[in-house]
Amino acid sequence: MKVMIATGGTGGHIYPAMALAEILKKEKPETEIVFFGTNDRMESKVIPQAGYRFYGASMTGMNGGISAKVKSAASLIKAGGYCRRILKKEKPDICIGFGNYISVPLIKAAKRMHIPVMIHEQNSFAGKANRFLANDADVIVGCYESNLEQMPKEKVRLYGNPQASLAALTEFDPSEIEKNGLDPKIPFVVFMMGSLGSESVSEVIDQACSLFDDSFQVIIAAGTSNDYEFKYESDERIRIVPYVDGKNMLKGCALAVTRAGATTMAELGAIGCASVLIPSPYVPNNHQVINALELVRRDAAVMIEEKDLTAEKLADTVNSLMRDPEKLDQMRKNAYAAGQRDAAEKMIACMEELVNG
């Protein structure tokens, strides 16, 4: 089987696509996988670095005024012709889109050429690209019940996020805690706001450091591209580092404080991790709040919206949870019950069904 995957823009689209590819290669080593994305964003680097063949196109999104939309339409037409040429050359058995505007020309071209099409929606509120492509897809893979209302219900299969399939395999490696000067025998709270970090949230975390109880440890992943400089200096109980292995930290921590992006939500459920969620307000349709509510309603997480976030509220929430190990244990169980750990495997079976008829 030869598979072509369109993905790009952000890690929320890219990493689930790469997770599917990784598990597909493990289960079906004979499978050939080719990626398509933009030629100037992160996918153009991380996908080839992972060893996959990659085609890149220049394309702009639809956000902005009339001139931006005209420019985007022109780039879509150009990319569509490029995609048809790629598909004639590669002859994939199936094409899969993981959202973002870059998936539109490939999926449209595949449909026109009668190649089976699957799209994957990571969020609780479907993105513009996937809503636009929904009628062209043979199968739509979603992660939330709300996806059934946003796209043709008869096409939607709620398999979950392929990133969860990888997260489910995670075994905690305490050496990451030890190399950062913390004791793996003492419970720890991990703070992760993504590689870009968040200046506003980082400042609140910074201020909260002096308010945390001394009965637990804290490791803060500031973000490799975060412009905020922490004023609190790392000590024997609190460590501030640029980067951590996210899945490893979620597996080993007593509590995680994170954003509520699609990949993070999938990993929290797959691993079974209690969390305090601070949804990003800078995303379309406020979808991170909707994502977060899926775990909050199951008593698997606590949500603090950024507009309500203060150092005192953050510290009080974390301290209160860490003082109640029984509640944390129940939150972990609830998160695990909400998780979907076989999304990639189900998608692969569905792909074979589409290809083989």
Rank of each mutant, 00 (worst) to 15 (best):
Y282C: 09
G11H: 03
A337I: 02
S198H: 05
T258R: 02
F98K: 03
I278Q: 03
Y52K: 12
E22C: 02
C209V: 08
A167W: 11
L76H: 00
A50T: 03
K111L: 04
Y282R: 13
Y282H: 14
S75Y: 03
V218R: 12
A266P: 07
L314S: 08
Y232S: 02
L169Y: 03
V34T: 14
E154W: 12
D316Y: 14
M59N: 00
L255T: 05
N161S: 04
G261W: 00
E233W: 06
I205W: 03
A137G: 02
K313E: 08
I348D: 01
G51F: 13
A221L: 09
E178V: 14
M18T: 03
A337L: 11
N319C: 04
A68P: 07
L250T: 06
I47D: 00
K88A: 07
K153M: 11
D173S: 14
A337G: 04
A126W: 05
G12H: 08
E345N: 13
H114E: 14
K71P: 02
A343T: 01
K313L: 15
Y15Q: 06
P16G: 11
E229D: 12
M265D: 01
M249Y: 14
E294P: 08
A262I: 00
L277A: 08
Y243E: 06
K91T: 11
E176R: 06
V289S: 11
G357A: 04
D227W: 05
K45F: 09
A109P: 10
V46C: 04
G61W: 10
I23G: 05
K26T: 07
I240V: 15
V244D: 09
A19C: 00
M4V: 14
E22Y: 01
P105A: 05
Y101H: 01
P281D: 02
V190A: 14
V257C: 06
R84H: 04
T7C: 15
A335Y: 01
L20A: 02
A6K: 13
T60F: 09
N286A: 10
A270M: 09
N135L: 12
E345M: 05
V141W: 01
K71N: 08
R341Y: 01
L158P: 11
V244F: 13
S58H: 15
Q288T: 06
A50H: 12
A315P: 09
M322Y: 00
Q288M: 07
F132G: 00
E203V: 01
S58Q: 13
N147R: 11
S72F: 07
R341M: 07
Y15L: 13
F125D: 05
G12T: 07
G160A: 06
V283R: 02
E149W: 05
E326L: 14
S234P: 14
F188P: 11
G127E: 08
P48A: 04
L169V: 06
A292Y: 00
K2T: 07
M151N: 03
F132T: 14
G357V: 03
E121I: 09
T7W: 08
A17L: 04
M265T: 01
L295V: 05
C273E: 09
L106N: 02
E30D: 15
L268Y: 06
D329Y: 13
E312K: 15
V70P: 07
K128E: 06
A164M: 12
A79M: 04
I290Y: 11
Y101Q: 02
Q122E: 09
Y82L: 12
H114W: 08
A17H: 02
I23C: 07
L24V: 06
V46G: 03
Q330A: 12
S198F: 03
T10D: 06
A335Q: 04
L158W: 10
G12N: 09
